[in-house]
């Protein structure tokens, strides 16, 4: 058994064995100072490539990353030079039996996604404008919903349905968005793994709504088999979105969508 050198005086006789040299560190270790500074400056350490000894992240690395972030649009990820941005994707299935009959499942999804992203940002005090870029259905031009957080489902629906699809703000198409929603309905595809374009921190994709047998609650309180409509949601998140994991974020989207489905969303 290896003994840390600092414990040597407490041991009866003999020189302690040298510490086992593992050859590699199992995980990146950040000093308290670096962790504290990163927290203060809102920098995520996981994606930083350290320039210190053995690749340790130094305070200079954190300050550099924070300075870079300050010079970028607010929603853009914080990344040090050479940092590999990790992206995580989660997939789920949601029942939208009632929503499919409503005019706009897309608007509900956009609204649910915006709320999910905003809830994460509020928790980290990183509240910024949320702009959504909506792609699809295939063949259509991408549309932009500026300041989507100021809009409800109907407002979003109105923007998406307008001929100038960016009427809720001065920025038009081509401006950066931090959330993208891809509508693949009508393609026969259940979902696509969303790709994060530059500046986009969360991307959601959904495909065909399919009907299939499902367990339903009967009026007498019992359970039976009915027909439900389901959609698959795939969500990719950039690791630099503070406090977010793809699964957690997608769970919030789903939760909100279920609220719309059950009519408890207001």
């Amino acid at each position: 058994m290896s003994v840390p050198p600092s414990l040597a005086p407490f041991l009866p006789g003999g020189r302690p064995e040298p510490r086992a040299s593992g050859g590699h560190r199992p995980r990146q270790v950040h000093s308290p100072r670096v962790r504290h500074l990163a927290h203060d400056r809102g920098v995520h350490l996981a994606g930083l490539t350290g320039t210190g000894p053995r690749g340790r992240v130094t305070t200079d690395d954190v300050n550099r990353a924070a300075s870079m972030a300050e010079s970028l649009p607010l929603a853009s990820p914080v990344a040090a030079p050479g940092a590999v941005r990790a992206r995580y994707t989660a997939v789920t299935e949601v029942e939208v039996t009632r929503l499919t009959t409503s005019p706009d499942l897309l608007a509900c999804l956009v609204e649910s996604s915006v709320r999910a992203v905003r809830s994460v940002r509020a928790a980290t005090a990183e509240v910024v404008r949320t702009t959504v870029s909506v792609h699809g259905p295939p063949g259509g031009a991408p549309r932009t919903v500026v300041d989507a957080h100021d809009l409800g489902v109907q407002g979003i629906q109105r923007v998406l349905g307008a001929s100038d699809a960016s009427l809720n703000g001065s920025e038009g198409q081509g401006s950066w968005a931090d959330l993208s929603v891809q509508d693949l309905r009508g393609t026969g595809v259940l979902f696509d793994v969303p790709v994060l374009e530059d500046g986009v921190v969360v991307a959601l994709s959904f495909g065909d709504v399919v009907d299939r047998p499902t367990v339903v609650e009967l009026p007498d309180g019992g359970r039976g088999i009915g027909i439900g409509s389901f959609v698959h949601l795939a969500l990719t998140v950039d690791e630099h979105l503070a406090g977010a994991s793809a699964a957690r974020l997608l769970a919030r989207v789903r939760q909100r969508l279920e609220a719309h489905e059950s009519g408890r969303s207001s």
């Binding site: 005086p9 000093s31 308290p32 100072r33 130094t58």
Partner: peptide
């Protein structure tokens, strides 16, 4: 002094209490 209970141990303890988040190692 010898390592055990030297004054530096007391200061290390102080720094762990009061300046942990300043330590870079």
């Amino acid at each position: 002094n010898p390592q055990l209970l030297g004054w530096g141990a007391e200061i290390a303890s102080l720094v762990a209490d009061e300046a942990f988040w300043d330590l870079d190692g």
